[in-house]
Design a protein around this nucleic acid. Structure first.
Length: 445
DNA sequence: TCTGGGGTCCTAGGACCC
DNA sequence: TCTGGGGTCCTAGGACCC
């Protein structure tokens, strides 16, 4: 038995904790560069604002409907998430943190009424952290997800589902007939693992609801889709196919990509941006004690500016040996950039991805390493050469941890024009209330 | 004028091997 | 005139998730 706990409109809820005046108002949180709505309060959803709606298309609602928009404050959301997750962990013995606002908990070995237990944890998160959540319980992760969707929808749009399922929905505590009624009322596209494309294909074949999908022959699912969708089908029938991932593996690739605050015209500005992105990716890389075997660099113009000449390109630069050294990775990224950069375009976005990651502890020997020497001596020599650089990187990370990200950076991040047009825009970011001394919430007597 | 960022997994097809 | 069978590895692209 699994529970899925999901924060409601998570980013908006985080903001409301520190600004109660946002309660009951239409609020959106915007993506980087204040580009699109990536979180919406229920009131904002009721205004018809879609997920991902561009801000410039909805900003008229500021005037006409009192819409409030905020720049994303990921530092705050990450910290609030940790607080919420630590409470949710108390639901069972094993927890998988699935995303910033969602967590699966394995209820195996937990006695008593699971629905009641879920209600208590939900209440505790609301009281101690201030975040409202919904909980779904089911025999598999896919069923828990579906139950969570029902719990959320029953709360937000009364009428579609029975009212007593709002906030907490435990499928296992319902009769077969009640469950079937829920499945008949739920579009197949709401199922975890059924995206837009597959939903379209299913609908074309006459499969509209979860119940329709469950009635399909599994062999038909396999033949007409893939083994992935077959697993989804089995999970809906109560056969667990997707394990709880409570000890996540190291990332297989690490990316840092950004849209620019303004169009970038010069190579110098692109170099500063790519250096900054690589530096950030390298921090993440060392954070999981890995090295990268290759660096991918890409640039592109804005596909939305049809009047501009378009250009997009990427290149993978392999490294001689895996590295977690910021200057080495930056050098590779800049070599890549010089290969794909073409003058005369209005660049809108660039990015760096670190690929072929291996654990730091791996030691790759080389056939042509100087004179022949026994393997151990060779390894020792490589280690000796690398140690000062590793210590330098460790010092860099320690300083940036202590004094804040960006306290110590490569000089190359300052290349290009002084205005740094690639820096992102964040016009309305709220204070980092819980993680920065200067930005703590103040109480006035 | 203004349109996010960061991941994972699966499959098909080509190159190559014996 | 005739041209096997079985396998691995890699990559690109497509699907999904939040």
């Amino acid at each position: 038995m699994y529970a899925l706990v999901d924060g409601n409109n998570f980013y908006v809820s985080c903001e409301r904790v520190f600004r109660p005046s946002l309660q009951d108002r239409a609020v959106v949180v915007l993506s980087n560069n204040d580009g699109c709505a990536i979180a919406r309060s229920n009131e904002a959803k009721a205004l018809g604002i879609a997920m991902g709606a561009p801000w410039f298309q909805i900003r008229h609602l500021e005037e006409s409907a009192g819409l409030v928009s905020l720049s994303a404050n990921f530092t705050l959301y990450g910290d609030m998430s940790e607080r919420m997750m630590s409470l949710v962990a108390g639901l069972g013995h094993r927890q998988e943190i699935y995303s910033i606002d969602e967590s699966f908990v394995d209820l195996t070995g937990i006695a008593g009424d699971w629905g009641e237990r879920a209600r208590r944890v939900r209440e505790r998160v609301l009281t101690w952290v201030g975040i409202p959540c919904c909980v779904g319980l089911g025999a598999t992760k896919t069923l828990a997800k579906l139950a969570n969707h029902i719990a959320k929808t029953a709360e937000r749009k009364p009428g579609l589902y029975p009212a007593h399922l709002a906030q907490v929905c435990a499928l296992g505590q319902l009769s077969v007939a009640e469950q079937r009624a829920l499945f008949e009322a739920t579009p197949v596209g709401e199922v975890w693992g059924v995206g837009r494309r597959i939903a379209q294909r299913l609908q074309a074949a006459g499969v509209h609801t979860v119940a329709d999908f469950m009635r399909c022959e599994v062999s038909w699912v396999r033949a007409n889709a893939s083994v992935v969708l077959e697993r989804t089908w089995r999970e809906l029938h109560g056969m667990p196919c997707i394990d709880l991932d409570d000890v996540p593996n190291d990332k297989q690739q690490i990316a840092c990509t950004r849209s620019f605050g303004q169009p970038v015209l010069t190579l110098g500005d692109l170099q500063a941006a790519v250096t900054t992105f690589t530096q950030r990716a390298a921090e993440k890389l060392r954070g999981q004690a890995s090295r990268a075997g290759a660096v991918l660099c890409f640039v592109r113009t804005s596909p939305f500016r049809q009047q501009d000449r378009q250009y997009a390109n990427s290149v993978v630069v392999p490294l001689v040996r895996p590295s977690a050294d910021t200057p080495e990775l930056v050098q590779a990224a800049l070599v890549g950039l010089s290969r794909i950069h073409r003058p005369g375009y209005r660049y809108a976005k660039a990015g760096v991805m670190l690929l072929d990651l291996v654990p730091q502890s791996w030691q790759q020997h080389e056939l042509d390493w100087g004179e022949a020497m026994p393997g151990d001596a060779q390894a020792a020599q490589v280690a000796q050469l690398e140690r000062p650089r590793e210590r330098l990187m460790a010092a860099l990370d320690a300083i940036n941890t202590r004094y804040g990200r960006g306290a110590l950076t490569l000089a190359a991040t300052q290349a290009g024009s002084a205005e740094q047009p690639w820096q992102m825009k964040q016009a309305r970011r709220t204070p980092r209330y819980t993680t920065h001394w200067e930005e703590l919430a103040q109480v006035r007597a």
